[in-house]
Write a protein that binds this DNA or RNA. Structure first.
Lengths: 225, 225
DNA sequence: ATTATCTATAGATCTATAGATAATGC
DNA sequence: ATTATCTATAGATCTATAGATAATGC
């Protein structure tokens, strides 16, 4: 009895792993190929061979290159949106607003540093396709905005308390994203000019971005608008 | 005599225009196609047809797709480098350092706004090609740096005068570029979220970027590094 | 019986060139 | 004689599928 059950469990785990193996391997290889070369530059033959399967398998599981790509883009878009939401919420309680923003910037910077090629890939494929563009905008509106609204409440408190100056939420978010994303995307160009190693580079840029945003939020400077 | 000379001049002008016409038209069409679709996504047949010439002409003048692309990328890279240098030098005398930086940010923002698709195109094609990457880095070093050094001298003066806080030049430049470039690249995503029209959008982002950098340079805040 | 995999190849597309023909400038 | 242009097609590459064969789960 016990042996049978054990075998079943092992079988199921094994099965699940094996049965999805080819499909999963194709997906993983496709992810790499698409993110590195974009849709037009990617080759289904390369994906198949680097997944270690026959080329026909790719079409067996995903029908067309387009559909496989769609899967990858959708997943990556969700990963990005989730990362923004995580950075918003993954903050412990009773922090001041300024501390919270600093934390958000750092958490998001780290996510991007771990996914260096993601921003450029998504920018490319989203901007060149109106449907995907609308999809991301609506995801931003429906998923991110509700979380952001909580932040806005806390922000108004901080303004009243005199901890920060008054600023529009979208303005602040775009500022943060701008600083973080270019630090990541353009790293291969800026790194040689900086003369730093990878770790120091990230420390330099991340902390500079935090500082820039905090100074932007500084309440002591007059707000001429 | 006079008529002959006149005819010659007209002929020469006409010739120059006509003889380079096909080549020029291909180049213009190639520029559009490559910037819009990237190297892998671009089709030489599309370039030829939108240039209004036979497909064979493209190979007659530029040998290969690669060589035609190289021409376009090189030219665009120079345009970008030049735009940075222009923004640095196109500033009238006897401005304070803070005014000068504001002017640089605005001039550069306007250039990018007039060349919306340029940054993403160059980022893509430069980052995916080590040779081009080195080329841009060395251009930055050889052409932009000398001009930037002048700025650095003026910057040190401003620090001494207490007009700005002390900041590394590269740090400042990366901050500016980050803010400006994402405002342009991500415009199609941010615009619908902002609810603004094109003109107001650019005004919003450009002035926000100036403000953020000026606050970053503010001397009254303690500099904890 | 269904699902997964392989071989072989169709079919489409794209870059590139050969070779003929026309236009141009001496 | 040289330069520019066109037609036609070679040659390479890539996506996609048909059809045969093997493996799996009932």
């Amino acid at each position: 009895m016990q042996t049978e059950m054990f075998n079943n469990i092992v079988n199921n785990l094994f099965m699940q792993e094996i049965s999805n193996n080819t499909e999963k391997q194709i997906l993983v290889a496709a992810e790499k190929e698409f993110v590195e070369r974009g849709f037009a530059g990617a080759r289904t033959t390369s994906i198949a061979s680097s997944a270690g399967v026959t080329h026909a398998m790719l079409h067996y599981y995903f029908r067309t290159k387009e559909q496989l790509f769609e899967k990858v883009v959708d997943e990556k878009m969700d990963v990005l949106v989730q990362s923004v939401m995580d950075s918003f919420s993954s903050v412990r309680e009773n922090l001041s607003f300024v501390e919270r923003i600093s934390c958000i910037i750092r958490v998001h910077y780290c996510f991007l540093a771990d996914n260096e090629r993601l921003p450029l890939f998504l920018l490319n494929e989203i901007l060149s396709n109106p449907t995907r563009k609308e999809m991301l905008v609506s995801k931003a509106r429906n998923k991110v905005l509700p979380v952001a609204v909580q932040l806005e409440t806390q922000m108004r408190d901080a303004v009243v308390k005199g901890e920060i100056c008054s600023i529009d939420l979208l303005t602040l978010v775009v500022d943060i994203i701008s600083l973080n994303i270019i630090s990541i995307i353009a790293k291969p160009l800026i790194l040689p000019l900086s003369g730093l190693d990878d770790e120091r580079y990230h420390n330099w840029r991340c902390e500079e971005n935090v500082r820039t945003i905090l100074l932007r939020l500084n309440p002591t400077v007059s707000n001429d608008e």
